[in-house]
Amino acid sequence: MSKTIFVLNGPNLNMLGKREPGIYGGKTLKDIESECVTAGRELGFEIECFQSNHEGVLVDRLHEADDRAVGVVINPGAYGHTSIALHDAIRAISVPVIEVHISNIHAREEFRHKSMIAPAAKGMICGLGPGGYLLALRALRDITN
Score class of each variant (00 low, 15 high):
E109I: 00
V100T: 05
F111M: 09
A78I: 00
E109L: 03
A118S: 08
R19G: 09
I117M: 02
F50I: 07
T38I: 15
A39V: 11
R138W: 01
L29W: 11
G25H: 04
D142A: 15
V57H: 08
L135G: 02
V72Q: 11
S2M: 04
I47D: 08
I105L: 12
K3H: 05
M116H: 12
A78N: 11
S52Q: 03
N12P: 00
I90W: 03
S83A: 08
H101I: 01
R68K: 15
F6E: 06
R61Q: 15
A92R: 12
L13R: 02
A78Y: 04
A69K: 10
K114M: 09
A121W: 12
L140I: 13
F45A: 07
S34W: 03
D66H: 12
G80S: 12
E33Q: 14
G129E: 09
A92I: 07
H101C: 04
R19C: 02
Y79L: 15
K30S: 12
C36Q: 12
L43T: 10
D88P: 13
A120C: 13
T38R: 13
G127V: 01
M116I: 09
Q51F: 03
G40T: 10
N53Q: 07
M15G: 06
V73I: 15
A69P: 08
V70R: 13
L128M: 11
H113K: 13
A89E: 11
I47L: 09
S94K: 14
C126L: 07
R112T: 08
K30H: 09
C49Q: 04
S94F: 06
P130C: 15
V7G: 13
I98G: 01
L128F: 15
R41S: 15
L29K: 06
P96V: 07
I90N: 05
L134Y: 14
E109K: 01
V37R: 11
G129Y: 04
I32K: 00
G44P: 02
P119D: 05
T82F: 11
V73F: 07
L13I: 02
E35Q: 11
